[in-house]
Write a protein that binds this DNA or RNA. Structure first.
Length: 596
RNA sequence: GCCUUCGUGGCCCAGUGGAUAGGGCGUCCGCCUCCGGAGCGGAAGGCCGCGGGUUCGAGUCCCGCCGAAGGCACCA
């Protein structure tokens, strides 16, 4: 019997108790939702296989003592199929012990459902637009964006496993000032001039500049000969680089697509799939920005002041109004955000019921205006728009944080990370941490190519189970002979309980937007499996003569050389663990090797 | 000043109101003539930042304080 089935049973019993007048002042409409009756795995095995706190939660509403109320539940639970024993303990916990056959039923379920085991469809019918990474196409993805790639992609997989339709989206900021800075940095590099004071620097700039020159040359254009305009100097007298010239434009036109494809290559190598690569520029080219502003104007949320056009975001809870068209006639960055959200919600192809944004902590100040904008369109903030703020990645050296900057040349890119520890370890270590916590990446650790990563512990459990299968095949063990009721040892019980918890973990990971829970679950399952492997043999091995004479020979025989029905049951348990680990690793985008 | 997030053994982290707070790294002691030791068993190590509150019950929720990171533009 699964924990979910137990929850339902307890809910049903609560209804019965009310109907039969045994539940005091409790009424059906006072019952919390059925999923609040969750049963949990007690930490102490003496408390049974599963425990429910239903009686404690409801006792007050019933006007009864928790312990007494729990006894009413216990009396009815005892009669249910598959339940071996029920005890009321402590302040009113209902502790349930299952028949071993009932506990082991999960094995057949896992093997029957395969890759589907644990999935559900409670988010079915909803289209979730998940935007993540969205780093500017002015350079390679650095470590911060890499974290969102790992977390975001796993998030998408987890949401899909909960039945949602997910559109994975990457937003290219390919319009405006930062692209100009990129382009003039390339011009400067191409001519061997100093990097503009607000420009980008690094080996990749020289490389892109070189490629642009070659590409233009192949098209019969001598790009370095095109018109140039000096952009002047900044307040400190530092050069600002190339002005608004034909040469800069030619560099921009050719270099930005190069960065697009480099980023797309990196994402592909990192096993991150995007369904939509959205270009900010298209919002302007297609008139979406003007359309969105007009829509807000229609609703009375646009006004003119000091020569600029403003969005009255304070009407919807923001702490100040926001400029969307500057007094010089240029659009502020936020104008595109308005159009983009509007587009996500109302586009012809897979319009979003929920637009989820994954942003770095340096963007948290945007939440107010974004939610205000959502409300201004008549949508529900927090429902139609959800913003997940993740903490930043600190790069450490000698135990101290180092400031990453393209200028200092110490930027850690996604490719650096992959080269150092590989895709599996990179994705796993970035996705296993709650994104609400900052994460530290140690440069020395990257350089050491260390195997010190929990991903190997999980992968090893999978590889080990595959090895058991190979050995069992060589020994001609028949799975059909299995009697799952013989999975009755303490180690069996721990593994079975872990397997049974996977559906709940997966659902929580989706509802809480917390894919790191998948990783921690896998570590728990792998631990239970490794322990089990150490005490219960699958492929039988005869006892030695000395062992035969020992007082505990019978226990040893069960552990090392059990009867065929038990051996086969263990093999199926082994297979079920293998399946669930593979399912979980798939959600993290990590491979499940059959040998290491 | 205001806003967001975080504070859990020496270090890194898990724990969406439940029982004696878990795991990894590190330290110490054990375990391969036996399905792979990338593993397993055991030990030491904790006022869950501090103080109030709510609750049958608080690491978890609320308030205040302390500390850390980030953010508060007609920049993008």
């Amino acid at each position: 019997m699964s924990p979910e089935a137990l929850s339902e049973l307890i809910y049903t019993i609560a209804q019965d108790l009310i109907a039969s007048g045994q539940a005091g002042t409790l009424t059906v409409d006072l019952l919390p939702p059925a999923d609040k009756f969750a049963v949990m795995r007690p930490k102490d095995r003496a408390h049974g296989d599963w425990a429910s706190n239903a009686a404690m939660q409801l006792a007050k509403k019933a006007g009864m003592k928790p312990h007494d109320f729990a006894e009413l539940f216990a009396a009815r639970l005892k009669d249910a199929d598959g339940i071996k024993d029920v005890e009321v303990a402590g302040p009113g916990f209902i502790n349930i012990t299952l028949d071993s056959a009932s506990a082991a039923a999960v094995v057949d379920q896992v093997l029957a459902e395969g890759t589907k085991f644990g999935t559900n469809d409670h988010l079915a019918g909803r289209t979730l637009n998940l935007e993540f990474v969205s780093a500017n196409p002015t350079g390679p993805i650095h470590i911060g964006g890499t974290r969102w790639a790992a977390v975001g992609d796993s998030m998408a997989r987890v949401l899909e496993a909960n039945g949602a339709e997910v559109v994975r989206e990457y937003y290219f900021n390919d319009h405006g000032e930062q692209i100009n800075r990129f382009a003039k940095s390339l011009v400067a590099a191409a001519h061997g001039e100093p990097t503009p004071s607000d420009g980008y620097k690094g080996a990749y700039i020289d490389e892109i500049a070189r490629r642009v020159i070659v590409e233009a040359n192949a098209d019969g254009i001598d790009i370095l000969d095109l018109e140039r305009i000096d952009g002047g100097t900044d307040a400190d007298g530092e050069p600002l680089g190339e002005g608004d010239s034909a040469q800069r434009e030619e560099f921009r036109k050719r270099a930005v697509p190069m960065m697009f494809s480099e980023i797309q290559e990196s994402m592909k190598e990192f096993r991150v799939r995007f369904d939509v690569w959205f270009h900010e520029n298209s919002l302007y080219a297609d008139g979406e920005v003007d359309k969105a502003i007009a829509a807000l104007r229609e609703r009375g949320d646009i006004f003119e002041k000091d020569g600029a056009t403003w969005f009255a975001s304070t009407k919807h809870g923001d702490d100040k109004d926001r400029v969307i068209v500057k007094s010089d006639g240029n659009y502020a960055y936020f104008a595109a955000d308005i159009a983009y959200y509007n587009n996500k919600r109302h586009r012809a192809d897979h319009p979003a019921d929920v637009a989820i944004y994954m942003l770095g902590a340096d963007h948290h100040g945007y939440i107010g205006r974004m939610m205000a904008m959502c409300a201004a369109f008549g949508d529900q903030p927090g429902e139609n728009m959800q913003i997940l703020i993740g903490q930043l990645v600190n790069v450490m050296k000698d135990g101290k944080p180092v400031r990453m900057s393209k200028r200092a040349g110490n930027v850690v890119t996604i490719d650096d990370l992959i080269d150092a520890i590989g895709v599996d370890a990179s994705r796993y270590s970035l996705a296993r941490t709650d994104y609400n916590s900052p994460v530290d990446i140690d440069l020395d650790l990257l350089a050491s190519h260390s195997n010190d990563n929990p991903v190997y512990y999980v992968q090893y459990a999978h590889a080990r189970s595959c090895n058991v299968d190979r050995n069992a095949a060589a020994a001609n063990i028949e799975r059909d002979a299995a009697d799952l009721a013989l999975l009755d040892t303490a180690a069996d019980g721990e593994v079975l309980a872990q397997l049974a918890q996977w559906p709940a973990v997966l659902r929580e990971a989706g509802d809480l937007r917390a894919p790191h829970r998948v990783a921690h679950y896998l570590e728990d399952l792998a631990a239970a499996y490794h322990k089990w492997y150490n005490v219960e043999r699958v492929v039988p091995m005869a006892l030695t003569e000395a062992e035969e004479r020992r007082d505990d020979a019978e226990a040893l025989r069960i552990a090392k050389c059990p009867e065929p029905a038990r051996t086969a049951a263990r093999l199926k348990l082994n297979d079920a663990v293998q399946q669930v680990i593979a399912n979980g690793l798939e959600l993290l985008g990590v491979s499940a090797p059959d040998k290491m």
